[in-house]
């Protein structure tokens, strides 16, 4: 019961860079451990290791857990297993697309193979698109252009 409430609260913590999805839906929250009655440890994993939003995530998780009544909140970071964009839930993929961010292709650990895969435009679904920059406004985004609807758009990179 308590676990359920913890996860429900964690699922309300939005990704600081993509506020339409939660840290849970993105696969960033890995574990929530109860340490006695008033202490909890939340384990998160960064999408990219240089992600500057990590400290904001820590603060927001801490505030959320305190609001649930935990006096002692620990937020741990792990690199293992390395975060994979395959962990982004189907619901979150839909939300990314509605936000104008093409979701990353499933890669099953073979990121190299996705470099050649066509990326569908999040606005018109055309795959008549081209990559303009493998790097974008944040570490996790690339910039593409849709030749069908003449729109530039961003993609969440496969990782």
């Amino acid at each position: 019961m308590k676990q359920e409430r913890i996860w429900q609260a964690l699922n309300e913590v939005a990704d600081p860079e993509i506020p339409v999805v939660s840290l849970v839906e993105m696969g960033i929250v890995r574990e929530a451990r109860l340490d006695g009655d008033d202490a909890v440890t939340v384990v998160i994993t960064p999408t990219f290791s240089g992600c500057p939003a990590l400290h904001v995530m820590r603060q927001e998780i801490e505030a959320k857990m305190r609001a649930l009544g935990f006096a002692q909140v620990t937020v741990e970071t792990t690199l293992h297993p390395p975060w994979s964009s395959d962990w982004i839930s189907d619901a979150a993929r839909q939300k990314l697309k509605a936000f104008g961010l093409a979701p990353p292709p499933q890669h099953n650990g073979r990121i190299e193979l996705t470099f050649l895969a066509p990326v569908a435009c999040p606005y018109c679904d055309s795959t008549n698109t081209g990559v303009k920059n493998n790097f974008g406004s944040t570490l996790c985004r690339a910039i593409h252009y849709c030749y069908a609807c003449q729109q530039p758009f961003e993609q969440f990179k496969a990782l």
């Binding site: 960064p46 290791s49 240089g50 303009k132 920059n133 790097f135 974008g136």
Partner: peptide
């Protein structure tokens, strides 16, 4: 501009690796 963004990203990644 695209390369300005790319180099900034690469620098940030390397900084992340340094931190790790």
């Amino acid at each position: 501009l695209e390369e300005d963004i790319a180099l900034a990203n690469i620098a940030q990644d390397e900084l992340g690796h340094a931190m790790v």
